[in-house]
């Protein structure tokens, strides 16, 4: 169990590092818009023309 004397201080270092990364993420605006990016991948334009046969929501 002596290894804990090394592992626990190491975990302290890691959590400090994670805190710094989190801090950077907030500052650089990663949390500004949590809605649109997840839609962007679906809405991205590709060059193929949209298929015609599925047109219309009400059919």
């Amino acid at each position: 169990m002596d290894i804990l004397f090394l592992l626990i201080p190491m975990s302290l270092l890691f959590v400090g590092l994670i805190a710094l990364i989190f801090n950077w993420a907030v500052r650089s605006g990663q949390y500004e818009d949590l809605e649109k990016p997840r839609h962007d991948i679906l809405l991205d334009d590709d060059d193929r023309p949209p298929p015609r046969d599925t047109a219309g929501r009400d059919q």
Binding site: S11, L12, V15, I18, A19, F22, N23, V26, Y31
Partner: peptide
């Protein structure tokens, strides 16, 4: 947000 993040991260440890 940062305050919550810090409290959560360190709280988990």
């Amino acid at each position: 947000l940062r305050r919550i993040g810090i409290a959560g991260l360190f709280g988990m440890q």
